[in-house]
Structures are given as C-alpha cells and as structure tokens.
Design a protein around this nucleic acid. Structure first.
Length: 268
DNA sequence: CGTGGGACCTGAACGC
DNA sequence: TGCGTTCAGGTCCCAC
C-alpha cells in the first residue's frame, strides 16, 4: 500500500509524539514480523534508549534510538500509530514498542507482509536504494534512465534506481508526462525524461500535501484517511473517463502490476 | 541484464 | 448465505 507520500505522512504524524520518548519494552504476537532479531534481543537492545529522530528513506521508516535503528517497512497494509495498549486498537496489530508515559507505537498489518528490522547502521538501505525523487533534479533523473531498455513503468518501480515510487504514483506520473507505460526507457527523448522527472516530483508532492491515499488500508497515524485518492487522474479509474481528455482509461498489466493509462494521452 | 512466475498473507468485492 | 475467484499501495527469490 504505502508509497513515498503515505510513508512521509506517517513519519510526519508520529514525529512530534515520538521524539524524546524512552523505550520501556516491546510486544509481538507474531515473531516473524521481526525479520532478523528475536523479541528478547530487540527488547534488551532498545530498553532505556531514547528516540532521537524518525525519518523516511524510500518507503522505509527509520526510528533512530541514539545510534540504533528500528527500520520499518509497511509493505501493503501496514499502519503505525500510538495506542495506550500494547495490542493496539485493532485486531491486526502484530508488534508494538512500549514507550514511557504508557504509550505504545503499534504496528498493524492485516496481510503480515510488513517487517520490523533492528540495525546498527543504515548502510544496508543506501546499498539497495536509489536516490530520493523529491530532491533529484530533472537532469539527474534523466541521467539515471540512461542505458536501460526496460519498460518505463517497470523502471520507475525499481527501488534500486529511484526510491519511493509505487504503483499509484508511477501511473499518475506517466499520465501527466503523457508517456505510455510500456515505452522502453531508451526510446524517451531527453526532453521527455526531464518532463517525467518533473511530473514525478509534482505528483509525489501533491500526494504528501493530500496526506496520502486511503484506498483501502492506509490511515494516517491519527486514524483518519488521507485524501490523495480524490485527486487520481488514472489510477483505479478503469473504463472511467480520463480526467485530461475524457477517453476511457484502460487497464493492462506491466511487470505483473495492474497499470492504468489513457490510450489517447499516452501513445506508444 | 532482464523477465516471468511464485511465494509471502489476509480481506474485500463480486459472480453464481 | 455460502463458496469460489480475483484483486490489492510491495519485495524477494528462482528459473530461464
């Protein structure tokens, strides 16, 4: 579910409530959510540590506990919020971090795809993720595309090339840039590549401004829905009129992901 | 290097 | 009502 705008919204919502809090324990009812560590080991490592920062890298949430990092990926249905109970406020909470003042950072995830990692360095993230799209110039984005023959939609979803774009914002960016999702990257002109970079930034920034897209599971930490879905131009609009030209939006599959595009605005 | 299939999981929506 | 199918914002692993 969550892509860059949703993850960023979660981080911004939690930050004021988390900074400065001290860990007093941890809880899980499904240890597999802890990818690389046992609950006992995680608790021993974090107990007594203070949260000094929380930030996003790609779609990962990084909680800095004085040099030790709790790294969380929400995958498809993950939610993160504060609760006054270790088991959280819904039936899908599988992990929580107990903090002082009787607060718990609850990780809810109905599909159980999400993971919580404990690391002493974030080098592993830098090794696997491409640059952040929001701070990437059009020219640098165009340079990243160099040398690839893949379908542009597939390329945008490759986190090693550029970090944070997911299925929704890939489709939305391509519509706005008027590029067909199956276009081979090496057949884009420099001008088209720069335009795509600009539209990616615009779409992601709008997604953040609307506090993320609540199609199904995603909620802000305060429990409310984001509003980004109200502004989609193609995503999830199969057979509905394109918001640019009115042509019926088509759905196809690219790289095994449902892909929405306007056959009039986005010519091959 | 790139792609396709499957795995990991559960819930919602829809057809019959 | 109940059952079967399909789809879902993501990522990893393996075969080819």
């Amino acid at each position: 579910m969550p892509e860059l705008p949703e993850v960023e919204t979660v981080v911004r919502g939690l930050r004021p409530d988390l900074i400065g809090r001290t860990v007093v324990g941890a809880w899980t009812d499904w240890p597999k959510v802890l990818d690389d560590v046992s609950l006992v080991e995680l608790t021993a490592t974090l107990k007594g540590r203070r949260i000094s920062a929380i930030f996003r890298r790609g779609k990962y949430i990084c909680v800095d506990l004085e040099g030790v990092f709790l790294v969380i990926h929400l995958r498809m249905t993950g939610r993160l919020y504060l609760s006054d109970r270790a088991e959280g406020d819904d039936r899908w909470v599988h992990f929580s971090l107990a903090l002082d003042q009787n607060a718990h950072m609850a990780f809810s995830d109905s599909r159980k795809f999400g993971r919580v990692l404990l690391r002493h360095s974030l080098d592993f993230l830098e090794a696997k993720l491409g640059p952040e799209p929001l701070t990437l110039s059009d020219a640098d984005f165009a340079d990243i595309l160099q040398g690839s023959t893949r379908a542009v939609k597939t390329f945008l979803l490759d986190q090693a090339k550029i970090a944070g774009i997911g299925n929704i914002y890939a489709d939305e960016s391509l519509l706005r840039a008027k590029i067909h999702p199956l276009t081979p990257v090496d057949r884009l002109s420099r001008k088209q590549a720069c335009a795509l970079g600009a539209e990616i930034r615009r779409v992601l920034e709008a997604g953040i401004a609307h506090e993320g897209a609540s199609i199904s599971w995603y909620r802000k930490p305060d429990g409310n829905k984001g509003e980004s879905q109200q502004h989609f131009m193609v995503y999830g609009r199969t057979n509905l009129p394109c918001k640019v030209c009115g042509t019926a939006v088509q759905r196809t599959v690219v790289g095994q992901r449902g892909t929405h595009f306007c056959p009039n605005c986005q010519r091959r």
